[in-house]
Amino acid sequence: MENNSDINNKQDNSAKQKKININGSAYTVAYSVIIVVIVAVLLTVASTALKPAQKLNQEIEKKENILKTAGKVDKEKAKTDKAKYITEEYAKYISESFVVDIDGNKKEGDAFSIELKRELAKPEAERCLPVFIFRNGEQLRYIFQLHGKGLWGSIWGYVAFENDLNTIAGVVFDHESETPGLGAEITAEIFQKQFESKKIDEENQFPIIIQKPGGKLNSHTVDGISGGTITSRGVQQMLADNLKLYKGFINKIKSENKDNYIEMNDKNQEL
């Protein structure tokens, strides 16, 4: 079998060589055109065919991150049929999502499809900032989106606040190309867990300070990553920059909450 095909091959090749000179310019040009067209078609087909699956993966990931920030992802359950589990949980707990501007006023737009990176490139007044509301019975959490720079590329994430908009309920960070084992450790649970129940310091330039591991911690500080100093600083800067943008919204909700609280107190007194 094999020998036969070899002989055929050889005959084919010698036939080709007799007819055309494979090192001639015309052949070279034709060859490169054909091979490039074949490759282009192949890649286009593959890319188009795989796009829906890839997009779905990205959407699921985003939903998972939002839920994880609010502390509502059961790892064991997510293992089997993750897509279905995440979609259901998201529909159940994320009761509302909307877009706000720098002053905290609601704007037209779909919060889920916003790419924060693009928004940050716009002038401040035109930026659309996504807000997701997590509601589980009485529990209410505000989830904001973050985007910043690490050492090698972008870093991004979400931060969830308790109802008082001062206490962090949870964070999720992710990165494009930080060094595995060093900067990339910002995705580790042990790093992200530290942020829980920390309070944002309003006086300070940085709401949360990421310091050298080993120092004393207070309610505004967390340990950084050894060997990942620049990425850690990037996370600190990202929190500072993005929370500054949400300040308008935070203040608005805080004053609304205060009014409600006073109203309730008034009512209580009246009663």
Partner: peptide, 21 residues
């Protein structure tokens, strides 16, 4: 046996890049 010698490297690169993508 069909690759022209002058664009040999480019063709190889093209095949590798396509597979990697």
């Amino acid at each position: 046996n069909t690759i022209p010698n002058s664009i040999r490297i480019i063709v190889q690169l093209l095949v590798i890049a396509t597979l990697v993508i």
